[in-house]
Structures are given as structure tokens and as C-alpha cells.
Design a protein around this nucleic acid. Sequence first.
DNA 1: TTTATTAAAATGTGATAGCATTTAATATTT
DNA 2: AAATATTAAATGCTATCACATTTTAATAAA
Lengths: 227, 227
Amino acid sequence: MSFEVPEFEGGEGLTSQEYVYMRLRNAIMVGAIPTGASLTMRGLADVMGLSATPIREALRRLNSEQAVEAQDNRRMLIPEMNSGRFEDLVSTRLVLECHAGLRALPYISDIVIGELRVIDDEMDAAISRRNYDRMICLNHKFHRALYGANPDLTSLPLIESIWLQLGPFQRELISDVGEFYVMGDHKAILDALMDRAPEALTLAIENDIQNGLVSAGRALIERRAQR
Amino acid sequence: MSFEVPEFEGGEGLTSQEYVYMRLRNAIMVGAIPTGASLTMRGLADVMGLSATPIREALRRLNSEQAVEAQDNRRMLIPEMNSGRFEDLVSTRLVLECHAGLRALPYISDIVIGELRVIDDEMDAAISRRNYDRMICLNHKFHRALYGANPDLTSLPLIESIWLQLGPFQRELISDVGEFYVMGDHKAILDALMDRAPEALTLAIENDIQNGLVSAGRALIERRAQR
DNA sequence: TTTATTAAAATGTGATAGCATTTAATATTT
DNA sequence: AAATATTAAATGCTATCACATTTTAATAAA
């Protein structure tokens, strides 16, 4: 195993399988697992001090969520990003998150806006400290809290699947442009929520995704293709 | 096990886990497994003549795809439908499938339209024979073939997750209204594809989903609430 | 030096068994 | 008769093992 699988907070009281799932999921989400590296069951079992059984179950779940690719040789790995897949993932993310935002809007209260503001402040702190892992997690937490205002929300698992697929690439992005990486900001989203303005919210969510991820992502893929 | 898990075609050369996954997935998709019934590992293992290991892996995958719900007591079951969840699932389905259709449109060729027409004809035959299982499968096959024209398609697994969640309810719907159940028709979709008309395609896909599922679904939920 | 061939190590898969938890059934008490 | 307590059965979870396949390494041939 040529890479580390970072620990995560809140893994107490879970079954082994749940623990492995959460830990790997978190690792993929923040891009801690390099693309292309084989995720072997015995290897992960050794790293985590468990048997292969719960590892295999967790890997299969992540495979079903498109976070991990199963090859013909039955090996599991984090798939490589390419231009076509990137554009399709981003367009799906835009559609899903705008939809989730609009569906949540009627349920947005001042209390929710307050909670979102707290998360956004934490994120500003993480940004100034250049703590990228925490930036990514708090960004997800913000969006989760927003869409979760809708009590009937069913699209969150789908959105998280997209996040998982973009996670490894986003990490490469960050380590590529380094401290110049800007994460889309949430101020416009908060303004739109306060105004209860659907169109403004859609635009703000689109911009949030577009600014951080898309422009930098396209540039990196372009640069790679030339090399 | 108080229900049957129908066999499916094309399960040769699969690992046990894949076989179980496909068989259960198919069963849920066509609504063959009743909502609320416990899916026990030993029970399913007995039915399928396998050990619990591949069963559990398949169930976890389906759980990750939101097709099966894991309760606190660690039991797995097909979740019940309710009004809020239904509306949210349908709205997500509309957004995702319209998006997938639009992304596929530039890749639509006369050959693809021909293939779609063949599937649609098979579906008409299934409808006239009142073969509901086959209707459902062919409907999915039609949509899969349409969206799959996009070579970079990443949203299909998400769409299939929605189908899985609507499957059991759709079956209840069919057995409720019986032979009067109408499945949304694909003729308008084919026309829009031939015209390469984005707006018409969006409307046609919306209508396709709306006609069969939504109107009847709302009526059934309404009727249940009164009872 | 490169390519084939062979041997050894590593890996994925699935059945089994033991343990912990949950559910159902039975016995006991009120 | 109803509610509670106890016991038995069923179920979920995970480590282990044996087998088949794949990968890697070492060896032999070109």
C-alpha cells in the first residue's frame, strides 16, 4: 500500500464494515487516495488491522457509488479523470445541486441561514489557514446543510456520488495550483437565501461550482493533454 | 421468505455476488419484492442456494444505491413510499432524465433512432400482451439506449438509483389500476429526436414520466391517505 | 539484450464457524 | 387475562481457510 488512509472523526460505535466504508469514503472525498493505485483487500485489511471481509463489503459499496472502479481483473482502483467525464460530471452536478437548492428554498428559515453562516465562517478560517482537507469537508457540509432543509430530500446520495467522483481530481487540482486555488464562495448563496430568490440562488450555486472547480479543472486537463 | 425472487436472463459467468446483485436488483426494479418484508441473509442464501457472504455484499450495494433500507436493528427491507418522498423522487427523475436526454441529443444518429424504434415496438407488443414486467424492463431499456448515446454519460447510475426506488411503488400502482395502467409513450420522444429539437425533447421526456407514473402515483397515495 | 517460459507470491472469492445481538416463544407473575 | 420475565431460536457480523485466478519474479531461450 503506497499511500496513507487518513483516520476520521466519529468512527466509534460503528461496525467494522461501516468504519471501513466511512474511512475510505472520507479519504476519497478529500482526494487522499491517488488515482490508478490498486485497492487490494489484504493490503487495506493490514493497514486497518481487520480481515478482508468488511473491506470487501466497503469497497463494493463504494464501487456501486461510482467512487471506485472495478476492472476486469477484479482489481479495484480510483479511476483517472478525463475531459469528457469531467464535463459530464460537472454538468450533472450543476443540474442536481441547483434542483436540490430550489427544492430546499421553501424550507429555508433564518435559523438554517444562521447555521450556514457558521459553517461558512469556519470555512473562511480554514481557507486562511490553507487547510485544504478541512476546506473540502466544510464546503460539503455547507451544501449538505442547505439541501437538507428539504425534509424529503432524496437526491443527496446522488450528489455525494458526484462529489466522490470529483474528489480525487479536485485534490490534484489543489496541489497543482497550490495556494492560488480558490474555492467558490458562499456569500452570494447566502444573499439569495435571505432574499428567498430562486433565480439568484440558481445563479449563485452555478457560480459556486463553476468558479472553484470548472475553470481550474479545464485548465489542468488542457495542460495534461499537451504534455 | 414470504416472496419469490424471480430468475433473470444472462446470469452466466458472473461471480456469486454479482449474480445475487443482478437478481435482486432486477426483482426490485420490477417490484417483485414487497415493501416492508425483511430481507434476511440466511433466508436469501437458502432461496438462492448460496452462503451468506455474497448475499450480504449484494444487499449492501443495493443499500448504497438507496434500493434497500438498512434499519437500526440491522435488518434490510424495501422502504415504504410516501407522498413527500414520491414527489421528490419524481422531481429528481425529471431533472436528471431531461438533462441526460439533452446531453445525448448531439450524439443521436439515425441508427440510434432506429434502435430506439425497435425497442419501442417491442414495448407496444408487451403492452398489448399486458406483460407488465417486460413493459417495465423495455421502458428502462429505451431510456438507457437514449441517454447512452452520450459516450461520456455519468448520470445513468444515478438515474437507475431513482428507478430502483420507484420500482416497488410502480408495481403496486400497476396491480392497483390493473389493465387501465398506461405507460408513458415514446412516440413524442422519437419525433423530437428526429427533429433534433431540444425543447421538444425536454417536453416529451417530461410528459413520458408525468403521464404514466405521476398522475396515477399521486392518486394512489391520496387514496391510501384517506383509508 | 530481448523475449518466452516457468515458478512463486499475491490476490479475489465464497463457505464455514463462533460470537454478539435481536426476535420469537415460552414461562412466570400480577 | 394481561403484562412481564425468561429461555430458545434466528439473525447479523467478521475472522479464517481453501481454492482459483492473476500478478510478479526468476529463469531459460532466442
